[in-house]
Write a protein that binds this DNA or RNA. Sequence first.
RNA 1: UCCUCAGUAGCUCAAUGGUAGAGCAUUCGGCUGUUAACCGAAGGGUUGUAGGUUCGAAUCCUACCUGAGGAGCCA
Length: 445
Amino acid sequence: MSVSKPWKPPMPERITIADAAKHVDEVVEIPGWLYNLRKSGKIVFPILRDGTGLLQCVALKNELPEEVFESLKHLTQESSLIVRGKLRAEARAPGGFEMDISGVEILQRVSEEDPYPITPKEHGVEFLMDHRHLWLRSQRQHAIIRVRHAIIKAVRDYFDGHGFTLVDTPIFTPAACEGTTTLFEANYFDDEKAYLTQSGQLYNEANAMAFGKVYCFGPTFRAEKSKTRRHLTEFWMVEPEMAFADLEEIKRVAEEMVIYVVGRVLESKREELKVLERDVTKLEKVTSPFPRLSYDEAVKNLQQHGSEIQWGSDFGGGDETILTQQFETPIMVDRFPTVIKAFYMAPDPVRPEVALGVDVLAPEGYGEIIGGGQRIHDPELLLRRIEEHNLPKEAFDWYIDLRKYGTVPHGGFGMGIERCVAWICGLEHVRETIAFPRMLYRLRP
RNA sequence: UCCUCAGUAGCUCAAUGGUAGAGCAUUCGGCUGUUAACCGAAGGGUUGUAGGUUCGAAUCCUACCUGAGGAGCCA
């Protein structure tokens, strides 16, 4: 004699929208938020957002209990809910899949008294920045942040795959790297001052002498009152440093890494670049070799193109644009005047008035994304430079030690992640390249 | 820090010295395939703040506040 068990409907599998294609013709449940709702009498089209994508759903009045249909019909933007139903391939739906809703669980209905502020229409920069915590839910911001993720992953994969060890450097530092004017100050217990790092480089050099090839990747802080589309006060920088490397090797690595990163983004983030309306043919041209100019040649070139620049000064705002517009790939400019570079920059042995430094300038007007070069490894010269720059020698004792105990030629570079993201995504401003940008006059949200 | 521009409904904007308006959003009504859906209706305003000019100011003037773009500086 058999006992019949009471029939229970099988619990539908919970999936994400990104996996919808694998579950066509299955009944599933998807938790998410209401992105938008279109309705037409007895049929409503809720569009669900779950962080992995968008899914159009369909609910018919005749096929659902009255209260379920009514609750959907009056649901407000960004209300949180779980939808259940059968997935179907549907050419008319954006994304190509659609769910026939059979059940809905509303987790929270956003009140119409205080509706979601970011509507599907256009908004201004100030409003969006004030609502950055909500703005991140939009398609465009998803695309940018995902490309950023891909860039960071590619950068790490590049260095991890080329014998570099990740050795992160401190955020709190006791003294300035290159001067004290640009640093954020913090109280470090009792009466001591600490500063937020503006570069991991000096510590990177110690790490390179310990491990050979290292990189650090973390946030850096600059208290400069720069108010332009290229500046944040808090930004992320990846900085490789290599023992036994000369300027040519540093340039080779910088070029190879940039090409690798762009390639990886093109390979894995086509959809996101499409959302951003990025002209990918411009990125596809980022191949070896990058044009190499000396500072001397760059100055001559700029003067021919009408710039006021004189030998001995740094590039002005328009200068980088004039230079990069002439090429389709990033360009490398090296051997800047020693006087405009940091104290640790190695002079060219045959021409000490120029330094063995290099900048990589991105095309399309994006400008400097990488700065680096060979560091001074001669102890006498380093001491002299510290004096010339009026830096407190005691603060650099440990740095000078690196030249006393087995000094070797070495160098590296730093790449600003946000500028790199802005370039690859084709953005107007770096403020969209990080979830919560910190800028002059903007600390919130 | 300096220069330029801008602040009008929740949002995006119009109104160029003479009665503050539209689209979106919200609410109500209509519509069974919508694609930033559409159609009809309703509510929604100390025109950034303070002062001044004028019969009359969103509009002209002054100061301040807020924001945006840029310069210098930088990745």
